[in-house]
Design a binder for these strands. Structure first.
Length: 271
DNA sequence: AAATGAACCTGTTTGC
DNA sequence: TGCAAACAGGTTCATT
């Protein structure tokens, strides 16, 4: 489900609830996520100093050493509920806080995962050691994107979804950014000219930033931590719009299968 | 090196 | 109406 904007919106929504709170205790409800759970005892009594985001990971930074790292997979979401409220639908993990509220991790498909990672192990951890730049940071530059594309025969869509190139871009925002920059998703990355790549670089930042401002995209499952949906799905120009008219030229948006998932594009605006 | 497919799960939508 | 197939926003692993 969640691409960078949805994870960032979740992070911002959770911050006021958890900042400075101590974790009384944490537990799971027995159903496994993608990987085994951490030993919850390590969180007991710890103070939450910050929530950071790297790529699509949420990082709960704790007083003392280490962070609780969470990935939402396809359908994961965090909710804040009063501790005396019963287990939420599809709730997998509950962190009880010291103010009578608790943080519930809910995940229908259970593709998400969590781990406790100490500071010393963090940067060399396989989930983090090969990640490319954050798309909204200064580290992500047009020239970096151009260099990454040089000589590459994979499709441009595949390339922008490769976390070694740039993080946080999934199927929706890749499609939207390629539309905005007028590039066909199946074009070979090495064949895309630098002017188009400069447009793509700008479009990626634009579309991600706009989506964060709109509270993310809710297609079906995504909810912010307060339960509200995200509104960016109304701003989709190609994603999920097969057969509908292009907002630019009035042509018909098409869909095709690429890397096992749907790609949407306008055949006259994207070449 | 790079492309493809399967796997992890459940729920919803689509088509016959 | 009922049932089966297809599909869903992510990542990793194995196979061509």
């Amino acid at each position: 489900m969640p691409e960078l904007p949805e994870v960032e919106v979740t992070r911002r929504g959770l911050m006021p609830h958890v900042f400075g709170r101590h974790i009384l205790h944490a537990r799971d409800h027995g159903q496994a996520l993608r990987y085994p759970y951490p030993d919850w005892r390590i969180l007991q009594g710890r103070k939450i100093l910050d929530i950071q985001r790297r790529a699509k990971y949420l990082l709960f930074c704790l007083e003392g050493d280490g962070r609780l790292v969470c990935h939402l997979g396809m359908t994961g979401q965090f909710r804040c509920l009063p501790s005396n409220e019963e287990v939420a639908q599809h709730e997998q993990v509950c962190l009880h806080l010291d103010d009578g509220w608790s943080l519930r991790y809910c995940d229908v498909r259970r593709f998400g995962y969590m781990a406790f990672i100490s500071e010393s192990a963090f940067s060399s951890h396989p989930w983090f050691s090969h990640l490319g730049p954050e798309p909204l940071s200064d580290a992500f530059t047009p020239s970096w994107l151009i260099r990454c594309c040089r000589g590459r025969r994979c499709s441009i869509k595949h390339l922008v979804m490769d976390t070694r190139i740039v993080v946080g871009v999934g199927n929706i925002y890749a499609s939207e950014a390629l539309f905005r920059s007028g590039i066909h998703p199946a074009r070979k990355a090495g064949d895309v000219g630098s002017e188009a790549l400069i447009r793509l670089h700008a479009a990626l930042r634009e579309v991600l930033a706009e989506a964060i401002r709109a509270g993310g995209s809710t297609i079906r499952d995504f909810r912010r931590s307060d339960g509200r949906p995200g509104y960016f799905s109304h701003a989709f120009r190609v994603y999920g719009r097969e057969g509908e008219p292009c907002v630019e030229c009035g042509g018909v948006i098409q869909r095709f299968k690429q890397d096992g998932r749907s790609s949407f594009f306008c055949p006259s605006c994207q070449t």
